[in-house]
């Protein structure tokens, strides 16, 4: 299988002294789901932000599809990386209805309306297309966020605690549905979570961030 993401000797710090990530190397294969687990503040989200191009590493390189996207001296902006991002707080655009939120990343495509409907149906929120984010439940908001991220057909889907704000029943419901979709579409996914059970359910591989060491399972 083709390697889609290659991280080599990555280090990152805030300020001069405190390193959140040190000499981290990792690769993600096409269609693979990898989870990153670890305690709060250990650098999981920072790693995701570096992959997304929202932060520049202090040392090391990040390559997507063999193309250099981040290094100490270079950073390709996030909008040019073809990634999907789903975060805990959903980050839906409050001034746009559900359909327009989903179409946001494909505005240049002619068949955007039909594509949006297809993804809304996939995530079972088609009947909510005219609603605004504040008019729907947290679970429904998360489904819309997934639809919005997937519709652009991203090379890598980055998930930052996407199920953390949901209740247990809703969470397990979404786990089953989203995993099925990821596998069907052959998506390459990096999931950041603090929930070990969730990581085990989803992942082909788990990377555990611990203080001073990283364990790959």
């Amino acid at each position: 299988m083709k390697t889609i993401l290659e991280i080599s000797d990555l280090s990152h710090s805030y300020g001069d002294e405190i390193f959140t990530i040190t000499d981290f190397s990792f690769s993600l294969k096409e269609g693979e789901i990898t989870s990153i687990i670890g305690a709060s503040g250990i650098g999981k989200t920072t790693l995701l932000r570096i992959i997304a191009g929202l932060e520049q590493p202090v040392e090391g390189e990040v390559r997507i599809n063999e193309k250099l996207v981040s290094s100490k001296n270079f950073i390709l902006p996030p909008e040019k990386r073809n990634l999907g991002l789903v975060v805990e707080d959903r980050a839906l655009f409050p001034h746009l209805n559900v359909k327009k939120n989903v179409m946001f990343g494909i505005n240049y495509i002619e068949e955007k309306e039909s594509l949006a409907r297809e993804y809304l149906e996939l995530f079972k929120v088609l009947d909510l297309e005219e609603k605004f984010p504040h008019e729907i439940s947290a679970g429904q908001q998360q489904r819309v966020a997934f639809a919005r991220a997937l519709i652009t057909n991203p090379d890598i889907l980055l998930l930052d605690e996407p199920f953390a704000a949901l209740d247990k029943k809703l969470k397990s419901e979404l786990h089953v549905e989203t995993k099925k979709i990821f596998k069907e579409k052959g998506l390459s996914v990096i999931l950041v979570t603090h929930d070990e059970e969730e990581a085990e359910y989803f992942s082909d591989r788990i990377i555990e961030f611990q203080e001073n060491k990283i364990i790959v399972r």
Binding site: P78, G84, L85, A149, T152, P154
Partner: peptide, 8 residues
């Protein structure tokens, strides 16, 4: 940040 990943 999501906006950036969606092309802005």
């Amino acid at each position: 940040e999501v906006g950036r990943t969606l092309g802005l």
